[in-house]
Nucleic acid binder design. Structure first.
Lengths: 113, 113
DNA sequence: ACAACGTACAACCGATTGGTTGTATATTCG
DNA sequence: CGAATATACAACCAATCGGTTGTACGTTGT
């Protein structure tokens, strides 16, 4: 099954619909960071950042790897790509419309045959 | 300015983080539909669907064109593409990480010069 | 051993979400 | 004109969201 479920899509888009979480994604796609290293970057409590990370993790956009007392966070580029592929599917629907319009024009100008 | 603001990104992802709204996008990318034609497709009140359409419109993902007493709704494929481009930017951040790792390896094996 | 650190999670709070019903306003049809 | 249709929007409601503080627990360093 190459295409993710609607539940997955809900989780993906919801997770990305927050600028702090998008910023976290940028950082953890660029390289590993511990949760507290991430928390230090934002003007909010550690718990708030930890919850953002949890939302992204549940959506499958990042993974955590325990290293001693730290939890090293990495972005999952494959998940990002699968979100992009959902949008590509949407675009395909639109291309279908264009194809249908072309057919219509063709059957209008070149009436017969 | 080719890249949209963070506010735009919030609106885009939030708008797409609902399966009914994604389904509406599929329909209106495939072709024009009146708001009530859309509403007829879902097991919820007209007002609920109208609010979903309004959310998508505010995000800039679709446009409405008044035709008599109907409001014809069309999906904006350019907006869909600009969401996709935001994800492409995220992916670029990740490519940057890989490039940096490669540099590290290069400077490690080929130590001098 | 124990203090400091890194993380997780519960409880709480105001704001927002996704739904409802009801009302108002144009527009079309007979 | 009056009735039916298509839309918009306000008011309301339960659930979720994004933030807070406080507590608990394993790990590290002295």
């Amino acid at each position: 099954m190459a295409e993710p479920s609607e539940d997955q899509a809900d989780a993906f888009f919801h997770a990305l619909a927050d600028r702090t979480r998008r910023d976290i994604m940028r950082r953890v796609l660029a390289g590993q960071h511990s949760v507290s290293a991430l928390a230090a970057k934002y003007d909010m409590s550690f718990a708030a950042v930890q919850k953002h990370v949890a939302v992204l993790e549940k959506a499958g956009l990042l993974t955590k790897l325990r290293s001693g007392r730290e939890q090293l966070v990495s972005g999952d580029v494959a998940a990002v790509r699968s979100v992009a592929s959902m949008l590509a599917e949407l675009e395909q629907v639109w291309r279908g419309r264009i194809a249908r319009i072309d057919e219509l024009i063709a059957s209008d100008t070149g009436q017969e045959d």
